[in-house]
Simulated scan of single mutants.
Amino acid sequence: MKTKVYLNKEKFIAGMTFKDADELESYNMALHACENTENVVENRKKLATFLQCRLDDFVCANQTHSSNFHQVTLEDKGRGASESDTAIVDTDALYTYEPNLVLCSFTADCVQVIFHNEVNGLIGVIHSGWQGTVKEISLNLFEHLKQVEHCNPSDLHVQIGAALSQEKFEVDEDVYSKFKDLGYADDFIYYNDQTRKYHIDNQQTVKKQCEVSGIPAEQITIDQTCTYLSTDGFSYRQDKESGRHMSFIIRKT
Rank of each mutant, 00 (worst) to 15 (best):
V134F: 07
N39C: 11
D20V: 03
C104E: 04
E170N: 15
K46L: 08
T253I: 01
I114M: 06
Y198K: 00
P153G: 07
C34G: 08
E167T: 11
E35Q: 12
S165R: 03
E35P: 04
C151A: 06
K45C: 09
Q209F: 13
V113L: 07
Q71Y: 10
I220W: 02
N152A: 07
Q204D: 09
S84Q: 09
M1I: 10
N62P: 10
E211V: 00
L51I: 01
S67D: 15
L74D: 08
T3V: 15
F115T: 01
P153Q: 09
H127C: 07
D201K: 03
S26W: 08
D174Y: 10
H70L: 00
T221L: 01
Y236K: 12
K146R: 14
E42I: 10
N68F: 13
K46T: 10
E10M: 01
N8C: 06
F58T: 05
K77T: 07
F115G: 04
C151H: 12
V212M: 09
I215F: 01
K2P: 13
E218F: 01
H65G: 06
K207F: 06
A217H: 03
S84I: 03
I250G: 08
A162Y: 08
Q203G: 02
A87F: 06
K146M: 12
L7Y: 05
V119C: 06
F248A: 08
Y6V: 04
N36V: 04
S105E: 07
E118R: 07
I88Q: 15
H199I: 00
I249S: 08
E118M: 01
N39F: 05
D239R: 00
E143R: 13
L101V: 02
D223Y: 09
D201C: 09
G15A: 04
K77C: 12
Q71W: 04
K11L: 00
V175T: 14
N117S: 09
N140I: 00
K11M: 00
G78K: 04
K9T: 09
Y27E: 05
Y27L: 13
S247T: 11
K207S: 03
E10W: 14
T96A: 07
N62C: 10
D187R: 08
I160M: 05
S82W: 02
S82C: 03
V5G: 10
A162F: 09
V125A: 02
M246P: 12
V89S: 15
V40M: 03
Y236F: 14
E83V: 11
G80L: 00
N68K: 15
E170V: 01
F234N: 14
D155Y: 07
S82V: 02
K207I: 00
N36E: 09
I137P: 15
E38C: 13
I160E: 01
Q159S: 13
I250K: 11
S177P: 07
H157D: 07
E10R: 11
T73L: 03
Y97P: 09
A93G: 10
R79V: 00
V72T: 12
G161Q: 03
N152F: 06
I200L: 02
D232R: 08
L51F: 12
L182H: 14
Y95S: 10
C226E: 04
